[in-house]
Nucleic acid binder design. Structure first.
Lengths: 258, 258
DNA sequence: GCGCGGTTTCCATTCAGCGGAAGCGAGCGT
DNA sequence: ACGCTCGCTTCCGCTGAATGGAAACCGCGC
């Protein structure tokens, strides 16, 4: 009967519901959600009811909850900022190279894939739009890391460096050298470090005031590793066209939450 | 000093903040938001603080709020259900026709564009991914309407039928006839009804149990209107391949909120 | 029909959230 | 330099909105 046993704010409870969808499947029942969030059943029920009424959550025909289309539509604007700008150039990149092309930004300790155009060749899919991969295991990630503030880069290298494949570079000292070299030469390459059978190359995309805000890259079958650098001029060209397009925005328009 | 003057629940207040972003620009200041939501400044400030800390909102370097990438990432799963399934087929459709290709579902009284591949030709953009257009002004919308439950279709025709261009069909009786014909022949055509200079054609995509859940369509320059029907076989082929891919999901997986 | 897992509704209790007011601080005009 | 304005941030005593235990409800299988 007490009013809010836990001390958590209402807002944080609502958000913890959304959080549950991030980590545990796209479709959850009331009791699962109550379990996952630690909320009493009736409280969870009421909050879910409000979220559902508003359209933030939808219910399938078994009564389970899913993230709703209204929330999707709303948050398109966030992805859209970069995406809408970059999309045409990304498509150019694809038509020039015929290889899987993508653009990513840094979000926390991971590379967040903002958009991608798939090649018809069946390159192993390491990630998807809106998905994330560790910064040290992909070409775009390495680029983002290489141009990041030194304090961040160093802190990152201190942390756990997950090995995605047997080829992932996980030695902090070696990685530090590699990143330095990347910053110098202006591009990064990975060979089966995120996914067996795939290699990739990426270059930075700077916003106004030289701050690197994103990275564009290509993914190829690892059998074609030797052709990677051939795409560099095209990649650079596309990157600088994206930069020109971004330049119209206020600085920091893409970059969010340190 | 009173506790919650308005009678609105905390959750609804939080959601009203998100609502403000739907209708008024992608970037809003504290005082704008307080104004728009009708919340006292200090209350808005606290709620925004929580949303920001969680990552639902981001702040640009002028301190204004924007919808954050965490929310975007989270809600990708909603769009992803249909999008990830349909994407490859949509890309096939594009490479077969070289025309702007899109897929949409019904959300409320509007067609919600779930995904699109742009032609390089500069077809007037009537909408964007995650955007909406009235059901009666586009080919995909007409298809969705034509296969909708009769009670819904009739209610829709009673309502205000906005004229997007001088060519938009807004006579309820004529539209009813047109929809009947569309359901019969299995495709819809619009000629500059949503946007001057563009014409479009669309066919239904049925989920399990014949329920029409989405529509795929092409947009062409209106100068090419005579070639529209030539694309019908390709369009139908792609639609049925999407149907096959959808068939694995539980029924109602895409359809949400009546 | 009866028990079981899950969902929905009810309502007296109480502390989390409220919001008025005061404190900052950056920009601007004089 | 100085005061003024405008918008953001922090503080804190009061109170009704949110809480959660319990009980009703609803299918479903045995």
């Amino acid at each position: 009967m007490r009013a809010n046993e836990t001390g958590r704010t209402v807002t944080s409870r609502v958000l913890s519901i959304l959080e549950a969808f991030e980590t545990h499947g796209p479709s959850l029942s009331l009791s699962q959600l109550a379990e996952l969030t630690g909320l009493p059943l009736s409280t969870a029920h009421r909050l879910l009811g409000e979220l559902h009424a508003w359209g933030a959550l939808a219910r399938d025909d078994q009564g389970r909850y899913q993230v709703g289309l209204r929330l999707w539509e709303l948050s398109q604007s966030a992805g859209r900022r970069l995406r809408d700008t970059a999309r045409p150039y990304l498509q150019d990149l694809f038509s020039l190279t015929q290889e899987t092309s993508h653009i990513a930004i840094r979000e926390g300790n991971e590379a967040l894939y903002v958009d991608r155009v798939y090649s018809s060749k069946r390159v192993p899919r390491a990630s998807r739009i809106g998905g994330r991969l560790p910064l040290h295991a992909t070409a775009v990630g390495k680029v983002l890391l290489a141009y990041e503030e030194p304090w961040f880069r160093e802190a990152y290298l201190q942390g756990d460096l997950e090995a995605r494949t047997t080829r992932t570079h996980i030695d902090p000292a070696a990685l530090a050298d590699e990143l330095e070299q990347i910053a110098e030469q202006g591009h990064a390459i990975t060979l089966e470090e995120a996914r067996a059978g795939a290699c990739s190359i990426a270059v930075p995309v700077a916003g106004r005031s030289d701050q690197v805000e994103a990275a564009v890259g290509l993914v190829l079958l690892s059998t074609q590793r030797k052709t990677l650098t051939r795409h560099l001029p095209v990649l650079r060209g596309v990157a600088s066209r994206i930069e020109a397009a971004i330049a119209r925005y206020p600085s920091g328009y893409l970059r969010q939450r340190g």
